[in-house]
Design a protein around this nucleic acid. Structure first.
Lengths: 239, 239
DNA sequence: GAAGGCCCGTATGTATACAATGGCGGAGCC
DNA sequence: GGCTCCGCCATTGTATACATACGGGCCTTC
C-alpha cells in the first residue's frame, strides 16, 4: 500500500472519528512526521481530503479541518435527498427485485430483534445492514457518476452521525423506513421508493437537528469529551 | 499563480477541448517537461483531474484520459437531472425573483435575436447566458455541497457538448426552455421549475444522443478532425 | 508612547535525487 | 519452434534539498 494512501486513510479516519476536531491545523511537516511519511505523499493526502471537503485552506498558509454546522447538515441533506431519491427511483426501475426483497426481510428481522436487545449490538447490526443496503443501491443503479457523488455525501455523513447521538427509538424507526424503501424497490414502485426515501431523510434530518439542539442546550461545545492527544492548536474554528 | 494550478488548468482545457483525446497516455515526466513544470506539481494536477474523473489509471503504471461513451452521457444526465431539478426547486423557494425575471427577459431577447443572425455569434451569446444562469442558480440555492457536485457534472458536460454538434434548431429550443425555467423560478413555482428542468434535460440528452448516432453513422471516429500536435500515443482507447 | 518598517523564522511550493516495482525483450531450455 | 525465466529499462512513488513568501516581533523614529 502506498504511503499516500495510508496517510489519507489515517487522516480520514481521524477526522471522521473526531480525533482531529474541526479547526485543527494540519501542518505538513508536523503531520508527515506524525504519520511517518514524507511531505510529498502527505500533500497528496491533504489534496484528496480537500477535494472531499474535509479540510480547507483557512489562509493561503494554513490548512484546517473544516467545521460542520447545522447549516452544513441541512445542505448535505439537500444534496443527499436529490441523489438518493433518484437512486431509489433508478433502482426500482432496473434493480434486481430479489436482492431488495431479501434486504426488506433482513430489515424486518432487525426490527424484531431490536426488541430483544437494544444497545450497541443492535446498532452495529443496523449499520452493517445500512452499508449493505447502500452497496446494493449503488450496484442496482449502476451509475458511476451518481455513486461518486453519493460517496462524497456519505463521507460527510459519517461526521454528521457522530455529532448527533441517535436515540434508540429513532433507530427502530429508521430500520422500518429502510424496510419500506427496500420493499418499494423490490416491488418496482419507483414513486413509493422515492417518496419513502424523502420521508426517511426528512425524519433523519429532523432527528439530527433536534439532537444537536438538545446537546447544545445541555453543554456548550462539550459534545465530544475526547481530549485529543494529537490535534495541537484547536484555535480559530472559523475567523 | 502556482505551477500546479497552471498544469491543472492547461490539462483541463486540453482534455475538454479534445486536444488530449480519450485514451491518451499522460506520462509524468513527459507532461511535466511539456508544460514546463516539475513532476511534483504535475502529479498534483493529475490527482485533481483524477478526482474529477477526467483521467484514470488504466493500469497501476499508466494514466490515461478517460473516454466518454453514450452510456456515460446517460449516467451524467441522470446525476444532472437529480441535482438540477433540486436546484431549480430550491431556487424557486429561496432565490431572488428579480434576478430570474431578468434572466427570463434576457433569454427572450436572445430568442428573438436568433432570427436575425444565427451562427457562432448567437451561440456565444447563448453560452454566455447559460453560464450566467448557472451562476445565478448556484447563488440562489446557496448550497456549497450542491454547487460542488454540479461543478463536477458541468466539467464533464463540457466534453459531452464537444462530442455532439448542436444544430441551430436545438439551440433556439434550449433558449426557450431556459426561459421557462427562469420564469418559473421567478414566479416561485417550484414544481414548474423542476418539471421544466426535467423537460429541458430530456430534450438535451435526446438531441445529443441523436447527434452522436448521426455522426457515428456518417464517419467512424472522425468526429473531431483536429489533428493534435501534442497527444503523442493515442493507442489503447480501452483494452 | 505609538506607529511603521525591517529582519528573521517558519511555513509552503517546487525541483531533483533515490528507490522500488512492473513490464518487456532476449536468451536458453524443453 | 515455442514457452519460460531472468535481467534490464522505464516509470512511478518517496524522500529530501532549495527557493520563496508571508507573518510576527523588535527596533527606530516621529
Amino acid at each position: 500500500m502506498r504511503a499516500s494512501d495510508r496517510a489519507y486513510a489515517t487522516l480520514l479516519d481521524e477526522i471522521q472519528s473526531g480525533v482531529l476536531r474541526p479547526g485543527a491545523v494540519l501542518g505538513e511537516v508536523e503531520q508527515a512526521a506524525r504519520l511517518g511519511v514524507s511531505r510529498t505523499p502527505l500533500r497528496e493526502a491533504l489534496g484528496r481530503l480537500g477535494a472531499d471537503g474535509l479540510v480547507a485552506q483557512q489562509s493561503p498558509r494554513v490548512t484546517v479541518v473544516t467545521a460542520i454546522e447545522p447549516d452544513d447538515i441541512r445542505e448535505i441533506f439537500e444534496v443527499r435527498r436529490a441523489l438518493e431519491e433518484s437512486a431509489a427511483r433508478l433502482a426500482a426501475e432496473r434493480g434486481d427485485a430479489a436482492i431488495f426483497a431479501e434486504l426488506a426481510r433482513d430489515f424486518a428481522r432487525v426490527d424484531l430483534a431490536d426488541g430483544d436487545h437494544d444497545g450497541a449490538d443492535a446498532r452495529d447490526e443496523y449499520y452493517a445492514l445500512i452499508a449493505r443496503f447502500d452497496e446494493s443501491l449503488d450496484s442496482a443503479v449502476a451509475n458511476d457518476y451518481l455513486t461518486a457523488a453519493l460517496r462524497t455525501v456519505r463521507t460527510h455523513l459519517v461526521r454528521v452521525r457522530r455529532l448527533a447521538r441517535d436515540n434508540p427509538g429513532r433507530l427502530a424507526a429508521s430500520v422500518a423506513e429502510h424496510r419500506l424503501i427496500a420493499s418499494a424497490i423490490a416491488a418496482r414502485d419507483a414513486d413509493l421508493a422515492a417518496h419513502a426515501t424523502h420521508v426517511h431523510l426528512h425524519n433523519a434530518l429532523t432527528n439530527i437537528l433536534e439532537s444537536l439542539d438538545a446537546s447544545a442546550g445541555s453543554a456548550t461545545g462539550a459534545g465530544s469529551p475526547a481530549h485529543d492527544p494529537v490535534a495541537q492548536p484547536v484555535d480559530a474554528p472559523r475567523p
